[in-house]
Amino acid sequence: MFDLTERCALVTGASGGIGEAIARKLYARGATLTLSGTRQRMLESLRVALRTRVPGTHVFVFPCNLSEAESVERLVTEAESAMGRVDILVNSAGVTRDSLILRMKDDDWARVMDVNLTAAFRLSRAVVRGMIKRRFGRMVHITSIVGITGNPGQVNYAAAKAGMIGMTKSLAAEVAARNITVNCVAPGFITTAMTDTLSEVQRNKLISGIPAGRFGVPEDIAAATLFLVSPEAGYITGQTLHINGGMAMV
């Protein structure tokens, strides 16, 4: 089950905790990978850690600044020429610029929209062309529970993540007849660099609202992503899979 042999996947945000766990999981199931992110050294060490089955093949690294339109286009072109095609897109890149709306600058809004939502649109548009031609594709966008519930201090991030869900549904409807599925995975609180900045007090308060009594781990998100990109999930499209220990049941 969940065999990805012969499949070529582009994973953005692979230098982050969730993206890295996804990359590891897809690789373990046989996928050829292109890793993208902002921190080249972390991407390179992930490539080394994956111990490529055949040196010089199977794992490629292309750093990318997702806030620039041309960089996004170039990333997809590079991934397609390195791997031959992109069958699977996992967009796990994301940034936060939290503050209450009264203190939020236009730039905080724009930056979060650019990297979280506009880049997701541009990546999807760039990879879908080849997927339509080949009559196969899997896309997973990593959104967030706050896109559904909202969260004080995150009007920008929550708006971008909610936007991703709407985009996913529309795109899923456009390309379903071409054997392409488009889904979201919505993490709740997961132990990563993004949540490491929380204080002990904040953390305990959050945990009290999670029925499972703990934060999730990146592997929880990776497992769901693997499922959605696998052959077994071919009839699942336009959905958002929530992984949050029961924190929000939607």
């Binding site: 062309r129 031609k133 456009e174 071409r178």
Partner: peptide, 11 residues
């Protein structure tokens, strides 16, 4: 053809 086919044809 469906609407996506017509876009593909133009491409």
């Amino acid at each position: 053809a469906d609407s996506l086919d017509t876009v593909e044809l133009v491409m």
